[in-house]
Amino acid sequence: MDQTASQGGAFERMNLAIEALAIKPVVDRLFGFDEVPRAFEHLEKGPFGKIVIATTWPAVTATASARRRSPCRR
């Protein structure tokens, strides 16, 4: 088996485990595409969860109010 095939199998097993265990990512902050410089500044500050850079306005609009309510927001 070549390396690509074994990596594909590992990826599939990982996805099955994520689904079976209902693992959800911890999103620390959401930034709009126009806020990329601020996103990099945030990364430089240290430990964090995942950050998301939204490239479309519906994604930014739909999650902006959730971002304000998020207890994880710093």
Results as ranks from 00 to 15, higher is better:
Ala5Thr: 15
Ser6Tyr: 08
Ala10Met: 12
Phe31His: 10
Gly32Lys: 08
Lys24Gly: 04
Phe11Ile: 10
Gln3Cys: 07
Leu43Asp: 04
Val36Asn: 04
His42Thr: 03
Asp34Ser: 09
His42Ser: 03
Val26Asn: 09
Gln7Thr: 07
Glu41Arg: 11
Ala39Asp: 02
Val26Met: 10
Arg38Leu: 14
Pro25Tyr: 04
Leu16Lys: 13
Gly8Gln: 15
Leu43Lys: 04
Gln7Phe: 14
Gln3Met: 10
Ala39Leu: 13
Glu19Thr: 05
Ala17Gln: 09
Phe31Pro: 10
Val26Glu: 09
Pro37Thr: 05
Glu12Tyr: 02
Ala17Pro: 00
Arg13Trp: 01
Val36His: 03
Asn15Gln: 15
Phe33Ser: 03
Asp2Tyr: 07
Asp34Lys: 08
Glu44Leu: 11
Gln7Ala: 08
Pro37Tyr: 12
Leu21Phe: 12
Asp28Asn: 10
Leu16Pro: 00
Ile18Phe: 09
Glu12Arg: 03
Gly8Arg: 15
Arg29Met: 09
Leu30Lys: 02
Ala20Trp: 00
Phe33Gly: 09
Leu43Gln: 06
Arg13Ser: 05
Leu21Trp: 08
Glu35Tyr: 00
Leu43Arg: 06
His42Leu: 02
Val26Trp: 07
Phe31Met: 13
Ala22Tyr: 01
Leu21Pro: 01
Gly32His: 07
Asp28Tyr: 07
Ser6Pro: 00
Ala10Leu: 13
Asp2Lys: 09
Arg13Pro: 00
Glu19Cys: 01
Pro37Lys: 06
Val36Ile: 15
Ala22Ile: 00
Phe40Asp: 04
Ile18Glu: 04
Lys45Val: 03
Ile18Leu: 15
Met14Phe: 04
Lys24Glu: 13
Val26Cys: 07
Ile18Ser: 01
Pro25Trp: 03
Val27Arg: 01
